[in-house]
C-alpha cells in the first residue's frame, strides 16, 4: 500500500504533540501566575537595566549568562531574592550577598521572566508552613537524608563539591527560597520536580530543616554541626590545651 506523503509528517506531528504534552502533564509545570501587564512592563524595564547584559535583551541568554526562557518566576525569586543575582563575579559558583532589590522589584522581574514562557511558579503559602497536623517531619528528615544530605550535610551545614563548587549551608534560608531551590535547581543543584518530590514532600523537608534550625541544642554548643573534625580540633586545642596548662601549673610548684 502506498502512503500519502503527508502521512509521515502527520505521524511525526502526532508523536511530538503526544510526547511533549504528556511530558508537560507528567512534570506538572505550574503555569505562570496571572500578573498584571503593568507589573510585567515594570519587570522588563528592571530586567533591561540590570540583567540583559548577560541574559540577553529578551532573556534569550548571551555570553556569560544562560537563557531565562522557561526558568519561571521561582528561579528569579530565588536568585535575586537571595542576592546571588545580579552576579558579583564569574567563578565556579555564585555566593550569596546582600539583596539589591525590593520585594516589588523582584516580583516584577519574576513576572516578566514568567511571561516569557511557562516555568515553576513561586510556591503557595500552604507548602511553606512548618507546623500543623498534616506535616510529617519524620518523613521530611528521611527524604532529606536520602536526597539532600550527601551535599548539604545531615543538618544542612553545607559541604564541598568538585572544583570549587559547593553546597551552601541551609541555616537562615527562608522556607520560600528552599522550596524554590528544589523546583528550579539553581547553579549546581539538581531539580527536584513535583513528580520527584511532591509539594507535600518538599513541605515536610522544609519543616524538618526549620525544626533543626530553630530547636534548642540539647547537648550544648554545637561546634558548627560539622561533625567529628570540629570535635577533634576542640579536644586538641581547648581540652588538651587546658589540661596541659594544669600540668604546667602542677609541675611548676616544685621549682
Amino acid at each position: 500500500m502506498r502512503r500519502r506523503p503527508w502521512a509521515i509528517g502527520f505521524v511525526i506531528f502526532l508523536g511530538l504533540v503526544l510526547s511533549g504534552g504528556g511530558y508537560a502533564a507528567a512534570t506538572n509545570v505550574v503555569q505562570a501566575e496571572v500578573s498584571s501587564a503593568d507589573q510585567v512592563a515594570e519587570g522588563r524595564k528592571l530586567f533591561l537595566a540590570n540583567c540583559a547584559s548577560c541574559h540577553g535583551s529578551n532573556g534569550e541568554g548571551a555570553i556569560g549568562g544562560p537563557s531565562l526562557i522557561g526558568v519561571g518566576a521561582a528561579s528569579v525569586d530565588f536568585q535575586v531574592g537571595t542576592g546571588r543575582m545580579p552576579g558579583q563575579a564569574s567563578g565556579p559558583q555564585l555566593y550569596k550577598k546582600p539583596v539589591q532589590f525590593t520585594e516589588e522589584q523582584i516580583s516584577a522581574m519574576a513576572a516578566y521572566v514568567a511571561s516569557l514562557a511557562p516555568g515553576p511558579a513561586i510556591p503557595d503559602a500552604e507548602y511553606l508552613k512548618t507546623t500543623g497536623d498534616d506535616i510529617d517531619m519524620t518523613h521530611g528528615s528521611e527524604l532529606f537524608r536520602i536526597n539532600c544530605a550527601m551535599c548539604h550535610n545531615a543538618v544542612g551545614a553545607g559541604g564541598a563539591l568538585t572544583q570549587g563548587k559547593f553546597a551552601p549551608a541551609l541555616g537562615g534560608v527562608t522556607e520560600k527560597h528552599i522550596y524554590e531551590a528544589m523546583v528550579t535547581g539553581p547553579q549546581n543543584m539538581p531539580v527536584f520536580n513535583d513528580a520527584n518530590l511532591t509539594p507535600e514532600d518538599k513541605r515536610d523537608i522544609i519543616a524538618y530543616l526549620k525544626y533543626v534550625e530553630e530547636a534548642d541544642s540539647v547537648g550544648g554548643y554545637e561546634l558548627a554541626s560539622i561533625g567529628p573534625v570540629a570535635e577533634g580540633l576542640f579536644v586538641w586545642i581547648f581540652g588538651l590545651g587546658f589540661i596541659i596548662a594544669i600540668t604546667v601549673w602542677l609541675g611548676a610548684k616544685a621549682n
Partner: peptide, 26 residues
C-alpha cells in the same frame, strides 16, 4: 557545655544515604 556526636542529627543507618562532612573521630 559542648555537644559531641549528635546522633539524632545523623538519623538511623541506612546503606543508601551518605551525609556530607562524614568523618571518623580524630
Amino acid at each position: 557545655t559542648f555537644t559531641i556526636n549528635p546522633i539524632w542529627n545523623y538519623g538511623p543507618y541506612d546503606p543508601s544515604p551518605v551525609s556530607a562532612g562524614t568523618q571518623p573521630d580524630w
